[in-house]
Amino acid sequence: MTIAGSIILIMLGAILTWAVEFTLAGLDIQVIGVILMVGGLAGLLFGLYRLSAVRRASTTVTPVAPVDEVHTTQRRVYEERHYNDPI
């Protein structure tokens, strides 16, 4: 579930919970709205976690040998990006 899909579920659940006035026999619209909001919130948290985990895993820091007699070190940072979309 994408972040946009999660936000849409949260908005749809909020509309069903607080803005809809009609009732259906054997079906509580407000409960369905709350379920959609909780599911959207869970999807949003999972999407944000996944996004941060991918960004955190793609950066690699490697130390480099000293350059001169002062023994200063340089660090080179390589950023690898992996795209999972098919061509």
Rank of each mutant, 00 (worst) to 15 (best):
M1C: 06
I3T: 13
I3L: 12
I7N: 12
L9K: 12
L9Y: 09
I10D: 04
I10N: 05
L12D: 05
G13K: 03
G13D: 03
G13T: 02
G13S: 06
W18F: 09
W18D: 01
A19W: 01
A19H: 06
V20L: 03
V20Y: 08
V20F: 03
E21V: 05
E21I: 05
F22V: 07
L24E: 05
A25K: 08
A25R: 10
G26M: 01
G26Q: 06
G26V: 06
V31N: 03
V31T: 04
V31F: 03
I32M: 12
I32V: 13
V34D: 07
V34N: 12
I35F: 13
I35L: 15
M37K: 04
V38A: 14
V38M: 10
L41V: 08
L41Y: 09
L41F: 13
A42L: 11
G43T: 00
F46W: 09
F46N: 10
F46K: 09
G47V: 03
Y49R: 14
L51S: 14
V54N: 09
V54S: 06
R55C: 08
R56S: 13
R56Q: 14
R56K: 14
R56N: 13
R56L: 11
R56G: 11
T59K: 09
T59L: 13
T60S: 07
V61Y: 09
V64T: 15
A65R: 15
P66A: 04
V67C: 07
D68Y: 09
D68T: 11
E69P: 05
H71A: 08
T72S: 15
T73L: 15
Q74R: 10
R75C: 04
V77L: 11
Y78V: 14
Y78K: 12
E79P: 00
R81A: 02
R81I: 10
R81G: 01
H82A: 02
Y83Q: 02
